[in-house]
Design a protein around this nucleic acid. Sequence first.
DNA 1: CTGAAAGCGCTTACAG
DNA 2: CTGAAAGCGCTTACAG
Lengths: 336, 336
Amino acid sequence: MNVTIKEVAKLANVSPSTVSRVIADSPKISEETKKNVYKAMETLKYRPNAIARSLANRSTRTLGIILPSNDENLFNNPFFIQAMKGISIYAQKKGYYIMYTHSGNENDSLNIVMDYINSKWVDGIILLTAMENDKCISYLKKSNSPFVVIGRPESTQDTLWVDNDNFQAMYSVVNYLIDKGHNSIGFIGGPHQYNVTKDRLDGYKRSLDIHGITVDEKMIMSVTDFSETCGYEAMKELMTHKTPTAVVTTDDLIAYGVLKVIKENKDLDIEVVGFNNTPLASYQTPPLSSVDINAEKLGYYAAKLLIEKLEKVEGTVNHYIVETKLIERESTGIAE
Amino acid sequence: MNVTIKEVAKLANVSPSTVSRVIADSPKISEETKKNVYKAMETLKYRPNAIARSLANRSTRTLGIILPSNDENLFNNPFFIQAMKGISIYAQKKGYYIMYTHSGNENDSLNIVMDYINSKWVDGIILLTAMENDKCISYLKKSNSPFVVIGRPESTQDTLWVDNDNFQAMYSVVNYLIDKGHNSIGFIGGPHQYNVTKDRLDGYKRSLDIHGITVDEKMIMSVTDFSETCGYEAMKELMTHKTPTAVVTTDDLIAYGVLKVIKENKDLDIEVVGFNNTPLASYQTPPLSSVDINAEKLGYYAAKLLIEKLEKVEGTVNHYIVETKLIERESTGIAE
DNA sequence: CTGAAAGCGCTTACAG
DNA sequence: CTGAAAGCGCTTACAG
């Protein structure tokens, strides 16, 4: 019913093997034969069956990704859709396809990963998030399946990964604030066990150190949730100790909470910096300065690393560091 | 190397055919045989190769979706990621997979659709957006490929689709405003050739009619872009004619522009309603009332329609209408 | 440079 | 209820 390689072979007066070689653009085939075969394919409107190719090749040229389904950030933070776009752009360029599935929790994710791998649907996996002792990572390693993780993994040697330089990102934000004359700077971040939080906190401390400012542990807050409420409360608590002249945060939502405290108290003159540069940032009052982590590029390079691994491109690195960029707005005194 | 149906057959002392039937849970196989085969599968950790199954079945149990890659709304409006989530939830429930690709423009989309279909990668397609004279739709129809569109298509008879009742949505918003005492209500919407715009405008007009308010065409504005800027300018222009007491819009971004005009002029007391209930809405000053279109449910039912079609479930409908919901906030006088 | 044959890992009509 | 055989539409080592 559907036109196959056989029909093309018949029309072009060659064998199916030859047609197959023409499709693969094998150098062994003479130009003339190629031309004939192309013509036959043209007139029959032949399209290779990707499934059959995959079966014979033992490769689907498909990448699998897993999306959280209950993460608040899924909708509020464009990280995921931006990363997906970057992945798609690179994959398309190389003729790869992408499958996605939403997962409710870590076990769910593990099952999806196992299914993707075992059923041979995908050639490799891109993990958009990684936990401590991530079950998916252990599984993928153990089963020797190609994968890449967005965010620095626990062992950076034997894993492909892409990430921002979170230390550097926060380090330069704090430098920037100190250069503006601040010397009493608060830090409100996520749970300390996350690598991102740790790295950013280190960047914060280092900057203070370099400038001879003593780190005051009471100015360092940790919230359990990336939410406005948590940010609000952390800021309140921070201020029972001391009122800073500036506050850095590790997420825009936290920063919104900080802004709220400031709005409630007209006397406060505190500069604030968020993280992730969500669309909401420019709509705050005042518009929030925020660090853009370039999620699209993270996705793009994740796909690149994985595909190069799959195609055994030699001499490639095992990670990429994607630059961040502070977007200055009124919350740090810059009108847009 | 990888364990196949043959090994399982050998271990269970049956033929490969039998193993295959057990996998498909054929009723023809005796319980005892099944048990043996299951045990063999268990000890060998057998997983069916989905690609081989797909080839033999001529079905991949995979759905394809196409995402715009330059649409501003891709990042600002969670519509896409929400719809994708709904699609994924239903697909997972039915054991289907999903592929996505980003597309730059309509021709790009057409090529992706053709590739998905011709290469036999997907069993059907979900279109997240549809244009007038949509090339993808014509192609899918002509090639007799299963597909469903989110948004009401031009011909509703021979197409599967899911949509909100946009007429009803706007009709009740305007009713609501009139009930609150407004009788001078502006409308700012997207290009009139879009079905959504037309439907919502009709709802607006009908509500005025019903309440005996004359429709004033000069209170109806059409913007070319769903952007704050366009909304701002449209509002300015509307007001050169007359200052309304309320304004309805067909997109939150437009509404933000309207809010901006109001903020610039302290004397104005105008209520505003947006559309899509983007995360930004609750962060406006004042927080913006907006119509939630329930994108996740749109995706869910799109997947349901398509999968039922693929599985030839009988007596199913060819479309679903997903309810909308006005989320009231301060921009219509309601504190959250 | 090209072809015949075996194989990728399943499914299923046919026969018993 | 179960098996042998052909087939899904490609690829590729082998032979020439």
